[in-house]
Lab assay of single mutants.
Amino acid sequence: EINVTSHGEEQAKHWIELAKRMNLDVEVEIHGDKIIITIK
């Protein structure tokens, strides 16, 4: 399980695309200006 804290939408999209390509599950939480991505 990987937790990524992203401070930008572009960076977040990059991680989500990467996870989808690798067929991994992704959870995205938004806390103000921080985007927390959990890849399982």
Rank of each mutant, 00 (worst) to 15 (best):
G32H: 09
H7E: 08
V28G: 00
S6L: 14
Q11A: 11
K34M: 12
M22P: 11
K20C: 15
M22N: 06
K13V: 05
T5H: 09
L18S: 03
M22Q: 07
K13I: 09
I35S: 01
A19G: 06
I2H: 05
H31V: 09
S6V: 15
T5F: 08
L18T: 05
I35G: 00
I37Y: 01
D33E: 05
V26I: 13
K20R: 03
H7Y: 13
G8T: 13
H31D: 04
V4H: 04
E1N: 06
I2D: 08
T38W: 10
V26M: 02
I35W: 12
H14R: 09
K34I: 12
H14I: 14
Q11Y: 11
I2P: 06
R21N: 12
V26R: 00
L18N: 03
A12Y: 13
V26K: 00
D25F: 15
A12S: 07
H7Q: 04
I36F: 04
I30F: 10
Q11M: 09
I16T: 07
G32I: 08
K20F: 15
G8R: 11
H31A: 04
D33N: 10
I39N: 00
G32K: 06
N23T: 13
I2S: 08
L18P: 06
V28A: 01
T38G: 01
E17C: 14
A19R: 04
I2M: 04
E27N: 06
K20A: 08
Q11R: 09
I39W: 03
K13R: 07
H14T: 08
N3T: 11
I2W: 12
D33I: 12
D33K: 02
E9M: 13
G32P: 11
Q11I: 12
R21I: 12
A19K: 08
E1C: 10
S6F: 14
M22A: 03
V28S: 01
A19Q: 05
I35D: 00
D33L: 09
I37M: 02
T5I: 12
S6C: 15
E17Q: 05
D25A: 10
T38Q: 02
I16W: 15
N23Y: 14
H31W: 11
H31Y: 12
T5P: 08
K13H: 06
N23C: 13
D25L: 14
V26T: 01
E10A: 08
I37F: 02
T38R: 11
E27D: 03
K20G: 11
A12G: 07
A19Y: 13
I36S: 02
E17T: 07
H31F: 09
I35H: 01
E9H: 09
L24D: 01
G8Y: 12
G32F: 12
E9R: 06
K40V: 05
I37A: 01
I30L: 04
